[in-house]
């Protein structure tokens, strides 16, 4: 699958002249125009942009939920443009860990079973899903609450379960969509610190947000506006109180 050039390692995400066009009635909407970038192993990248900027479209493609109209997007060296629905599903299962704003945990299902869920869709089957799920829950600090159902957990705890679920398949990257959007600021900070520590352990993290102080926890910032990549720069920590 990977056609790695001899010197440089295969980027986790490689976008080249990425375009996405939607047909809305008579009108053609250019959600993304000619976007190119690379994200490498171990990076912590924030993607920012106002609503309607094409940020969500970009995120869907990095998450292998959508395919480009033209240009190329390779995840772990695999060009997603040529994949079928089921191949995309398998790719998501093996290489991407999703974290959502609304957590998206299954109700009335224990934290442990929620974390195990991606493993039930894995092919080939993993040997001991239970043990892996337990390890992931311990990793996010929820070792004592494995049998709790979502309604018995606080928002921050639910998002930790979701992060454990994202980790369970040992993905190449974690894709977080506004992961603190439903949390208060103290809890948000805890979640962002968890991401930072995961990143410190070598996990690649891509986080979509519209808040600058959230993005400030990342080490690289991609800004999207009007479907174009307008900024690609390292984050200067600590963040300035520039914009609201």
């Amino acid at each position: 699958m990977s056609q790695a050039e001899p010197q440089t390692p295969v980027p986790v995400v490689a976008a080249r002249n990425l375009c996405k066009t939607y047909q809305l009635g008579e009108q053609q909407v250019h959600a993304l125009r000619d976007v190119s970038f690379e994200i490498h192993r171990g990076e912590f990248v924030a993607i920012m942009g106002p609503s309607g900027s094409g940020k969500s479209t970009l995120m869907n493609m990095i998450g292998a939920l959508d395919v480009p109209t033209s240009g190329q997007l390779a995840i772990d060296g695999t060009d997603i443009g040529s994949l079928s629905r089921d191949e995309l599903a398998a790719l998501r299962n093996h290489t991407i860990g999703f974290v959502f704003q609304q957590f998206n945990l299954l109700a009335r299902t224990s934290a442990l079973d929620n974390v195990k869920l991606p493993l039930t869709y894995s092919r080939p089957r993993v040997a001991d899903p239970e043990a892996i799920a337990r390890r992931c829950l311990e990793q996010v600090g929820l070792g004592a609450r494995m049998d709790h159902v979502p309604s018995q957990l606080s928002g921050g705890q639910q998002q930790r379960v979701a992060i454990a679920r994202a980790l369970v398949n040992s993905p190449s990257l974690i894709l977080a969509d506004e992961p603190t959007g439903a949390l208060d600021s103290a809890t948000s900070l805890e979640i962002l610190q968890l991401f930072e520590s995961l990143n410190a352990q070598g996990m690649t993290i891509i986080m979509v947000t519209h808040e600058l102080d959230v993005a400030a926890h990342a080490r690289r910032l991609l800004r999207v506006r009007d479907g174009k990549l307008v900024e690609d720069a390292p984050v200067n920590s600590p963040p300035a109180e520039v914009a609201a």
Partner: peptide, 16 residues
Amino acid sequence: TREIGLRMAIGASGSD
């Protein structure tokens, strides 16, 4: 629908 979306996102195939 959301549950189905989630299952698909984390790797459920159509036949799953």
